[in-house]
Amino acid sequence: MVSKADQELIDAATSVISDRYRNDWQEVGAAMRTRDGRIITGVNIDAYIGRIAVCAEAIAIGRAITEHGDHGIETIVAVRHPKPGEPGKIAVVSPCGICRELIHDYDAKARVIVPDQGQPPKVVSIGELLPNKYKRGSE
Rank of each mutant, 00 (worst) to 15 (best):
K133M: 10
S18W: 02
A78P: 00
A64W: 03
D107M: 06
H68S: 06
M1L: 11
S138N: 14
D116Y: 03
R111Q: 12
R80H: 05
C55I: 12
D46K: 13
G97H: 09
P121Y: 01
D36N: 15
V79S: 04
R111K: 15
A56L: 01
E67D: 13
P131T: 04
N132V: 02
G85P: 04
E86F: 05
A108V: 11
N23W: 05
H81D: 00
A56I: 06
T34C: 07
T75F: 09
V77L: 03
K135R: 12
R22S: 07
K133V: 12
R100I: 04
V112M: 02
I39T: 11
I59P: 00
N132P: 07
R33T: 06
Q7R: 10
Y134I: 12
T41Y: 02
A30F: 00
H71S: 10
R136S: 14
T66M: 09
I98E: 13
M32N: 06
I65R: 05
Q119E: 15
S18T: 14
D11K: 08
D19A: 15
N44C: 03
G127L: 08
V2I: 15
G69S: 09
K135T: 14
R35L: 11
R35K: 15
Y48F: 15
C55K: 11
G72W: 07
E8W: 08
L129T: 02
V77Y: 05
G127I: 00
S94A: 15
I61F: 02
M1N: 09
G42D: 01
D19E: 15
E57N: 12
W25P: 07
R35A: 09
I61N: 01
I45M: 09
H81Y: 10
G88Q: 04
A78R: 04
V93Q: 00
G69M: 08
I126W: 07
C99F: 01
I65M: 06
I98F: 11
V54K: 11
G127E: 14
D105W: 12
R38A: 09
H68A: 08
E86I: 09
V112P: 03
R63K: 15
V79R: 01
K89E: 10
K122A: 05
G37K: 13
A91R: 15
I113H: 03
V2P: 06
W25M: 08
R80Q: 11
Q7H: 12
A58P: 08
K122Y: 04
K109G: 15
A30R: 03
I39G: 06
I90W: 01
A60C: 07
K133S: 08
G127T: 04
